Computed example of a mutant assay.
Amino acid sequence: MKKLIRSLPLLVLALGVTLPAVAGVHWGYEGDELPENWAKLSPEYQMCGLGRNQSPVNITTPIQAQTAPLEVHYGTTSGNIVNNGHTVQINEGKPDDYIVVDNQQYHLVQFHFHAPSENQINGKSYPMEGHFVHSNANGDLVVMAIMFEEGPENTAADQLLARLNAKENSPEAFDNIDIKSLLPANMQYYRFSGSLTTPPCSEGVTWIVLKQPMTLSKTEIDKFTQAFKHHNNRPIQPLNGRLIIEN
């Protein structure tokens, strides 16, 4: 319990909750607040400049490993969708959705989107990337990333966007949306140790990047990017000797 309590500030920041007392100095993706300056904005954000295991990364030359298949237990869920000024975020309303990593359950707390993608695969960037943020009982984080490219529309994304309020920090509730339909059929993945991709850039986050991309229609991609009003992707960070494994 003590470890969970100590982890709460990190978890709150990871979830993008807009609480001035917790969020600290304002940061962004433009002007003086762009990612290259995050470490200068506040002592709380020093890891953005000093960290050695930062995200996102360019995934190249992964090492083949005998890893367990990724177990994903998602279903029909409820919650709310909000433009929080940094991203479009979907906050999970039920505790039922989880993944299993290293024989531990990590429950889905929220997911959000970046355009263009933050991570790259062999130097390739995608129009959008979804980050599904999970936490276990100790407050440890696993982010499952899914790449999106232009193609057929996605029913779940369309249902979510229909509930999105263009006004910032104005959450709108939704119900009975099958979020598993946002995931590909092939759940093979890359895995590496990284960080939050937003301040305070805390490290110790397990990253799982799915190999198979999903599709969104041009209209859906445009609706997301219009909500962002600007790119919201952090530049690629150096690996600094880290290994990336794949299954």
Rank of each mutant, 00 (worst) to 15 (best):
N84Y: 07
N53S: 13
N103M: 01
P127I: 08
N154G: 13
A65Q: 04
M47R: 10
E150P: 05
I146S: 08
Y106W: 00
K94M: 06
D102P: 00
I59D: 01
C48N: 03
M147D: 15
T155F: 10
I90T: 09
V142T: 09
M147L: 12
P127Q: 05
G49W: 09
E71I: 13
Q104N: 11
I63K: 06
M128A: 14
P56I: 08
K124W: 04
A157F: 11
P62A: 00
W27A: 07
S117F: 06
M47N: 14
A137K: 11
H107Y: 13
G79N: 04
Q159W: 07
R52Y: 11
P152T: 15
Q120R: 07
N119P: 01
H114F: 10
H107R: 13
P127M: 03
C48K: 07
Q104G: 00
R52F: 13
M147C: 11
Q159R: 09
H107V: 08
C48P: 08
P43F: 02
N103E: 06
G130C: 09
S42P: 04
E129C: 02
N136K: 10
H112A: 07
E153R: 13
T87G: 02
G31F: 11
N53F: 13
H26N: 15
L41W: 05
G49T: 12
N37I: 07
N53R: 11
V109A: 12
V101D: 08
P43D: 05
A156L: 04
E150Y: 14
D102M: 00
K40P: 09
S55C: 01
Q159I: 07
D32H: 14
D97P: 02
G93C: 01
T61H: 04
A162D: 10
S117R: 08
P62E: 02
N53Y: 13
M147I: 09
P116F: 08
E36Q: 15
D32A: 15
I146R: 03
S78P: 03
G49F: 04
M144R: 13
P95A: 03
G123Q: 03
L108W: 02
T61E: 14
V100A: 00
E118F: 02
A162T: 09
V101L: 04
G31A: 14
Q64G: 02
I146G: 05
G79W: 03
N58P: 00
A115R: 12
M128P: 02
T87D: 14
N136D: 15
G151A: 14
F111W: 14
N136Q: 10
Q64D: 08
N53T: 12
E36A: 15
M144Q: 14
A157M: 15
V82P: 09
Q64I: 03
E153Q: 12
M128L: 14
F111K: 08
H112N: 13
Q110N: 15
G139E: 07
T61Y: 01
H131Y: 05
T76L: 10
T77A: 01
W27Q: 09
S135Q: 10
F132H: 12
E118M: 07
T60N: 06
V88M: 01
Q110Y: 03
N37D: 15
G31C: 11
L160Q: 03
Q120A: 10
F148E: 11
P127G: 01
Q64A: 11
L160W: 06
G75I: 04
Y98W: 03
N83L: 03
L70T: 06
V88L: 05
P95L: 00
P69T: 05
